[in-house]
Amino acid sequence: MSNLSLILTFSLVLLSLALSYKEKLGLEKDMLIASARAVIQLTLIGFVLKFVFALDNLLFTTIILLLMVYNASTVAAKRGEGIEKATLISFTAILSGLAITLGVLISFRAIPYEPSQVIPISGMVVGNSMVATSLLFKSLLNNFKNKKEEIEVKLCLGAPPKEASINLIRDSIKTAMLPTFDSMKTLGIVQLPGMMTGLILAGIAPETAIKYQIMVAFMLAGAVSVSSFIASYWTYRSFFNKLAQLKEV
């Protein structure tokens, strides 16, 4: 694709702007800012990736991964306002999901620990774990607010906090994991995912692209599950004090 072709695709944004203006949606400013940010951020990351790939340094690559996890955990923690240590919980949950997933992929020789392989893969893992952790925090906050009565009745019967909130914990884990598994179910039928589409567009044979996509689907399932479990079983404790009393949400 030539640079001119790429510039001409901006006409599609102009179409959106025209529609927004005609329908008085008031989204024109947001659209322009979003388009500008997409171009600037992607250009910058292109240069950064080029530099990191050329450097091919194990420590530097690991630092980049940790930065990705940290950024994702601060975004997820915003959904968990009111939860104690939300950033630490989401950082640990997302990092664990990433470590286990990368560990499996590398030890089974699916990918080597090289920046050009590990960074894009980690981006997908961290992104999905971040969404799952955000959903989990939101769901736990809602559940602990709306089902206070059920928890207190169980506490009154002498149930420990975990037992009193187990249904809510399970419900929240399901909420966090379902989008990933729902999208797995529709792979190839409803959607051709970004990674596979990208590989095919770059000239890779579909059968090879599919192999990568299957690996991606499996690793996302693993990462999202690990992150959701760790975050939920850590977070529920923050809704109780040391006397097993429910705190105000």
Partner: peptide, 9 residues
């Protein structure tokens, strides 16, 4: 706490 709550219901 669980022990106390089982005695005082």
């Amino acid at each position: 706490p669980t022990e106390l709550r089982r005695r005082v219901s």
